[in-house]
Amino acid sequence: MPERLPGYRPPARWLHWIVAAAVLLMIPAGLTMTQEGLSRPVQDTLFLFHKNLGTVLIPVILMRVIYRLTHRPPPLPKTIPAWQRTAAAVSHGLLYALLIVMPLSGFVRVRAGGYPIELLDRLGFGPWIAKSESLADAASALHATAAFVLIAILAVHVGAALQHALIRRDGVWSRMWPGG
């Protein structure tokens, strides 16, 4: 039986799983929508979904970052080696940074490219950024590179979570699971 560890508070858990679900939807949409040979209606639908969900995610991610900065996470069990503690801290820091970079670079890419963000346009928000192909290209390159880094770090994060849940069974997984 694993040691009973203090878990994350409910707001941290809910913000984690809302962002996780959204990101896990955004990744395949983002990878698929840019493929050659995709039918125009499917591509348009994926672009609409991806950029508007990304826009909605910005305030949710900001809430998550603010919550994390103002609420210390529960400590890891003493049985976790120092190198794994360091790896966890580094990967979490990178995840948070990428969760900020991804929607902001996507927003800049779309707006600097002169494209609409339908949700913001309907709410009466202006473009905020002047059209600039060079800025759009730079934001696009950053967005694409950060996407692959995010996918790699998420794979490590999910792998570590599954290792704690299924192999070690040390209680680390249940700290973040909504039912904890």
Rank of each mutant, 00 (worst) to 15 (best):
V101N: 11
P116S: 12
Y115M: 03
G180A: 15
R68L: 04
P81C: 02
K131G: 06
I27S: 00
P10E: 06
L69K: 00
L5R: 11
I18F: 11
R109W: 11
L150H: 12
R109F: 11
L46A: 05
A20V: 14
R109G: 00
R40S: 04
A82H: 14
A22K: 09
W128Q: 05
M176R: 11
A152F: 07
R168L: 14
G171R: 15
P73T: 12
G37I: 03
S134N: 04
V108P: 01
L104W: 11
G93K: 05
T32V: 13
R72F: 01
V149H: 03
W128S: 03
I27L: 08
L38H: 10
T79C: 07
P28W: 03
P41M: 10
P75N: 07
V19D: 00
V56M: 14
T70F: 08
E133I: 10
L25G: 09
A89W: 11
G30C: 02
S132A: 06
M1H: 12
I151V: 15
M33C: 02
T70V: 11
A144G: 04
W173H: 04
S91G: 13
G179W: 11
I117C: 04
R85I: 03
G113D: 03
F47S: 00
M102V: 02
M33R: 11
R64K: 07
S91D: 13
L62F: 12
Y8L: 09
R175W: 08
R175E: 07
G93P: 01
P178L: 12
M176K: 10
A138Q: 10
Y96E: 02
A22N: 05
L142G: 08
W83R: 14
R13D: 09
L150W: 11
M26G: 01
H16S: 11
M102S: 04
A161W: 12
S105R: 02
T86N: 08
L166N: 08
L5Y: 08
Y8K: 12
G114C: 04
V149E: 05
L162W: 08
T32Y: 06
I129C: 08
M33P: 03
L53N: 08
S91P: 04
V65D: 01
Y8F: 15
I167W: 13
P41H: 13
V172L: 05
L62C: 06
A12L: 08
A138T: 15
R72I: 06
I61Q: 01
A12Y: 07
G113T: 02
A139V: 10
M1K: 05
K78M: 09
L24W: 14
Y96W: 14
W173Q: 04
V101F: 14
P103Y: 05
L154F: 14
F49I: 00
W83I: 10
V42S: 06
G171M: 15
T34N: 08
G159T: 05
V156I: 10
V149T: 10
S39F: 08
A146D: 08
L31R: 02
M102I: 15
R4K: 12
W14E: 05
